[in-house]
Amino acid sequence: MRFLISLCVSLLLLINGEITNGQTTETTTSISDPCYDYNTLDEYWRDIQQSQYSGRDDTLVEWSGWYRLYLNGESAQMSEWCVSYMQCGGETGLYLNGSHPTLEDGVVTLEVVGAHSWWLYGYSHQCGAYRSTSIRVKACPGDYYVYEFVKPNTSVPRPRYCAVAFKSISSDPCYNYESLDRPWRANNESGAHFCDYSFSWSGWYRLFYNGMDIRMPETCVSSFSCNTYYNLWLNDPHPQIEDGVVIRDVCGSYHWGGCCEFNSKPIRVKACPGNYYVYELVNPQFLCAGYCTGTVLFPLFNF
């Protein structure tokens, strides 16, 4: 009788778990993969290019499960950029405070933030001033992302998740960049006044000075440099190769102002094999600001 009872118990353990060295270990099997079990979210006003205010508020949405983003039927992803005031259909645009995961990362939890805005010599933005509720994100086979959206922090003024046109998961900016060789951007150049806001920035850039690798300055750029009104430079050190893609703050100094008189939009930076950097440059915060470069800097990395 004892043998039969023991046999039945063992069978039950085998059905509900595994027996290893006398210990029962619960087996966990995923009920569904969010890469194939998601809701579709295609709302044009979530585009960071949309600046028409429409009073959208994601705290009023009944979020449930995982979502895949689209913009006008095309695959999209959450913004990793600081979103300007009154974009994406509401007041505070929410974006990821970090890079999207890779396929190998599986499901990761990422911080969600928003920018605070006020009037000071035009619009000025304090990126990451608001902290919303973190969300889970996953990169999927087939080149797209899914997000487990939740109700944002209600202390954030009219928050909403912002989207951008999708960029391929498999594209490495170290090998997919545009060369930018503009000697007049060097921090020892002065004269004309160029405004980077008028440039059509798109993607990643590798910086050169007359054919030689250079990088953006990490220290204050003196007045009347880089052939622009507002000199833009990195307010954080460059990354190492093992850091991957990082977000760096950008400082702006004016001809007769302070060293970091205002903050422009943050940019993404990556250190690449081959001893160079790439930058994902965007339109600056101010109308006549320009990205500065060094002159000759070798080696680029500090190992």
Score class of each variant (00 low, 15 high):
Asp37Gly: 04
Tyr130Pro: 02
Thr293Ser: 03
Pro266Ser: 03
Leu207Phe: 02
Leu232Phe: 02
Thr295Val: 14
Tyr70Ser: 06
Glu111His: 05
Pro141Ala: 09
Pro239Phe: 10
Glu148Ala: 15
Ser134Thr: 12
Gly274Pro: 06
Ser32Tyr: 14
Phe286Leu: 13
Glu242Met: 13
Gly203Ile: 06
Gly244Tyr: 00
Tyr38Asp: 02
Tyr209Val: 01
Ser264Glu: 02
Arg185Asp: 01
Val246Gln: 05
Glu189His: 12
Gln50His: 13
Ser134Cys: 09
Cys220Pro: 03
Thr40Pro: 14
Ser84Ile: 08
Arg215Met: 12
Asn231Phe: 09
Gly98Met: 08
Ser202Glu: 10
Gly93Met: 00
Asn235Lys: 06
Phe262Lys: 10
Ile267Cys: 03
Val156Glu: 11
Ser171Pro: 09
Val296Arg: 13
Thr102Ala: 14
Gly22Gln: 02
Arg158Thr: 12
Ser10Gln: 11
Met1Ala: 14
Asn235Pro: 02
Met216Asp: 01
Pro101Ala: 02
Ala192Thr: 10
Gln240His: 12
Tyr229Arg: 14
Ile267Ala: 01
Gly290Glu: 01
Cys226Pro: 01
Thr29Gln: 08
Gly203Trp: 04
Ser168Arg: 10
Ala271Thr: 10
Leu71His: 05
Leu300Ala: 08
Leu120Gln: 13
Phe149Leu: 07
Tyr38Ile: 03
Val83His: 07
Asp243Ala: 09
Trp45Ile: 05
Tyr95Leu: 06
Ser99Val: 06
His125Ile: 04
Phe298His: 15
Trp118Thr: 15
Pro237Ser: 15
Gly55Arg: 14
Val61Ala: 07
Phe166Pro: 01
Val113His: 02
Glu26Arg: 12
Gln77Tyr: 07
Arg248His: 12
Thr24Phe: 14
Trp201Thr: 07
Thr295Leu: 08
Val83Pro: 04
Cys251Gly: 04
Val107Phe: 07
Glu43Val: 07
Ser64Cys: 10
Gly128Lys: 00
Asp47Pro: 02
Thr109Gln: 07
Thr27Ser: 13
Phe224Val: 12
Leu300Ser: 09
Gly22Arg: 00
Pro273Asp: 06
Arg268Asn: 08
Asn235Val: 10
Asp33Ser: 09
Asn188Pro: 08
Phe3Asn: 15
Val150Gly: 05
